[in-house]
């Protein structure tokens, strides 16, 4: 499975990680390509800082409370779970890094590779499922 993660807000990051962790439970290799605003999630502290989108951002604290009550893992825990499975690969978009002035050392160590869209396309062409989230 190949997923383009285009947004750094909680509402988009959760589904991406939930699908990736479910896929890994099925031994399905999953490749997550973080691009544009999605890349901010891979900056150190980025997952913890992720908020709900637009005006809903003021409800972020409440949502995080609900997530905790429901026993749903945090985004960082979801990422750790994905990486632990060994089936989930994390890619940072090289163009976005230049655009957003993000350096390699700004990224969390869970990032497997910094790649361009072509490299990701090569992966996506071989995947049975391709998603844009």
């Amino acid at each position: 499975m190949a997923i383009i993660v285009h947004s750094g807000t909680m509402d988009k990051l959760y589904p991406a990680f939930m699908l990736a962790s479910s896929a890994s439970a099925l031994d399905v290799e999953t490749h997550l390509f973080f691009t544009f605003w999605g890349l901010s999630a891979l900056k150190k502290g980025g997952l913890e800082a992720a908020k709900l989108p637009g005006l809903m951002r003021i409800g972020t604290g409440m949502m995080k409370g609900r997530i905790r009550e429901a026993g749903v893992p945090t985004l960082s825990e979801m990422l750790a779970m994905c990486k632990e499975s060994g089936d989930v690969k994390i890619y940072a978009c090289s163009t976005t890094m230049e655009l957003m002035k993000i350096r390699e050392e700004d990224l969390i160590p869970e990032v497997d590779e910094i790649v361009g869209a072509t490299a990701f396309m090569a992966i996506a062409l071989d995947a049975d499922i391709q998603l844009f989230i």
Binding site: M18, S21, S22, S24, A25, G71, V72, M81, S85
Partner: peptide
């Protein structure tokens, strides 16, 4: 626990 935790 809720999806995807039980399966994971």
């Amino acid at each position: 626990l809720f999806c995807p935790m039980p399966i994971v």
